[in-house]
């Protein structure tokens, strides 16, 4: 039986902390919140300390932060309607770009793993795909109006330039480039309330989603010609819900993170708890079973975000309404 042990409590934010994101090298953690700041945390001996506080980028709540796959850029999405791109030069983080276009709150942003594309989404129900040119110019490649309500999160499939988004309209949609257009290639509609977050596994053939319906769902990709005989119209991979985890969460599940190293899934819940799930050893690939490996109490209010460190197995970061960022070790 695994355990989740609290290892560090990072104080600094004033008020709700909305999101945390690990640098791809795992040595830095970015966090953001309603105090309109981004904090970047790193090790100092045995301790974790705030290395930098960026407080001049946004005029309203900063909802989410994300790093580019190369680690050179950090993006911040804000309720002020803009997304800022920061880069580290000469000992300091500079805002090199402020992307405008969304009508109001931007809720999430993400770089594709190739670094060629960047995506944002927001309350205006749209998903924007930006093409990143070599000179760091961001050009809008598509504005996608497929969702019927605000879009909560965007995530790119590892290894491919496929974009997934989840929404207040209870659905998850996927998009791919088709010639010069971006088109919807999947519409997953099994959740019965807002889908707050989505996360791919390391290889990108599975995705987990977390929802206000108190469940977590595991989705699996079936490529054309799959051995299971799942139909793939137009030779586009099909996604199927292969597992639903219900009965574990007593309030909204705000975030989910799938560890690329260990395969563990962590969830952030409105019941102040963090839960860690692991696929059972005897699990059937096409009807997998996941077991609750551990639960962490510690936060005193809603947990808004969880993120597994991409380099250090078992190191998990979380963000909460209680104003803290916490680090945990899964044993």
């Amino acid at each position: 039986m695994g355990r989740l042990e609290g290892s560090h409590i990072l104080h600094g934010h004033k008020g709700r902390v909305w999101n945390v994101a690990w640098h791809p090298e795992g040595h830095l953690l970015a966090s953001c919140g309603e105090d309109k700041t981004i904090r970047i945390w790193g090790r100092d001996g045995q301790k974790w300390v705030c290395k930098t506080c960026l407080s001049d980028g946004h005029s309203r709540t900063i909802r989410a932060v994300s790093w580019s796959a190369c680690g050179k850029f950090l993006a911040s999405a804000s309720f002020d309607g803009t997304t800022s791109v920061w880069t580290y030069t000469k000992g300091d983080y500079d805002c090199i770009m402020s992307l405008e276009g969304h009508e109001n709150e931007v809720k999430s942003s993400a770089w594709s793993h190739s670094g060629q594309y960047f995506a944002t989404c927001g309350r205006d129900k749209t998903v924007w795909v930006w093409e990143v040119a070599e000179d760091n110019e961001y050009e809008c490649a598509a504005v996608l109006f497929n969702h019927a309500q605000d879009v909560k999160k965007v995530a790119w499939q590892p290894g491919r330039d496929i974009l997934a988004s989840c929404s207040y309209d209870d659905s998850i949609k996927m998009f791919r480039e088709d010639g010069t257009e971006w088109v919807q290639c999947a519409n997953l509609t099994s959740h019965t309330s807002t889908v707050w977050s989505i996360a791919f596994n390391g290889s990108g053939d599975r995705m987990a989603s977390s929802s206000d319906d108190l469940t977590v769902k595991i989705w699996q990709e079936y490529p054309p010609g799959n051995a299971q005989g799942i139909e793939t119209p137009d030779n586009i991979p099909a996604w199927k819900c292969v597992c639903t985890l219900s009965g574990y969460h007593s309030r909204t599940v705000y975030d989910i993170s799938w560890c690329p190293l260990s395969g563990r899934i962590a969830t952030a819940c409105g019941d102040d708890k963090i839960r860690v799930f692991q696929e059972s050893p005897e699990s059937d690939h096409d009807a997998p079973t996941f077991e609750l490996e551990g639960t962490a109490d510690g936060h005193t209010q809603d947990v808004n975000a969880v993120a597994w460190n991409p380099k250090e197995v078992g190191l998990l970061a979380s963000a909460s309404d209680d104003g803290t960022v916490r680090l945990w070790c899964a044993k």
Binding site: K14, K36, G323
Partner: peptide, 14 residues
């Protein structure tokens, strides 16, 4: 507009 000091959350934090 972009005040750096934001009152602590909890009560009366708006």
């Amino acid at each position: 507009e972009n005040s750096q000091e934001v009152p602590a959350r909890g009560c009366c934090q708006d």
